[in-house]
């Protein structure tokens, strides 16, 4: 029954103060918001904090949600800005999580263990790890476009950028992901 209720109905009920409607919205989007937060902040513990904060902010500003955009677009925009604030708190010098000027920073994982990776034989896990190695912006745009299947226009709204910029960023993110996959996970993923 709860699953059949549309976002619009749940939002309306939440606006009227129904706690269960809030809870249903959290349940429905917790994985998406958490995954996106994880793409940006790169750490599960921090992603929990960011996702929780994003939901609280979303509920706080729910009366301002006019419904011009999809609820998810609006929610992911909040997740993005909350992540940006979180990263800024950690590093006050950071202006954006766009790293066009910086090379992809590969975390030092010690000696690669191909046997372990082959044991898992999980292409998805390898691809997830490759995405995690991307910069926050690159990982975010790849997640939003290819995983969540948001349009470029929606991504522009979420990440507050122009169409041209988004297109270029997506192309570069794809190239960087390809570079990581070919360099690190070529045995697990045939790109």
């Amino acid at each position: 029954m709860a699953a059949t209720l549309s976002d619009e109905i749940l939002i309306e009920q939440a606006r009227n103060g129904r706690q269960t409607a809030f809870a249903m919205l959290v349940k429905r989007y917790e994985q998406y918001a958490f995954t996106l937060a994880l793409r940006f902040v790169k750490n599960r513990e921090d992603a929990h904090e960011v996702a929780q904060d994003a939901f609280l902010r979303a509920f706080r500003y729910l009366p301002d949600f006019r419904g011009d955009a999809k609820f998810t677009t609006w929610l992911y925009k909040i997740v993005y800005s909350t992540s940006l604030n979180f990263l800024r708190k950690q590093n006050p010098d950071i202006q954006s999580i766009d790293d066009d000027d910086r090379p992809v920073k590969l975390p030092d994982e010690g000696t690669p263990d191909p046997s372990q990776a082959m044991e898992r034989n999980d292409r998805n896990a390898a691809l997830q790890r490759a995405i995690q190695m991307l910069s926050p912006d690159d990982a975010g745009i790849i997640t939003l476009f290819y995983l969540y299947e948001h349009s470029l226009e929606e991504i522009c709204q979420i990440m507050d950028m122009t169409m041209t910029n988004a297109k270029t960023k997506l192309c570069r993110a794809r190239q960087r992901l390809k570079g990581i996959v070919e360099g690190r996970f070529s045995t697990e993923i045939a790109y």
Partner: peptide, 29 residues
């Protein structure tokens, strides 16, 4: 194929009880 692989990537699950914690924080707020 690559696009399909991307789209089929599972989302990450937050720890159990995440939604409850969010709601508790919201109620407290």
């Amino acid at each position: 194929d690559e696009k399909r692989r991307f789209a089929s990537l599972p989302t990450e699950r937050p720890n159990a009880g995440f939604a409850d914690r969010v709601m508790a924080a919201w109620v407290s707020e």
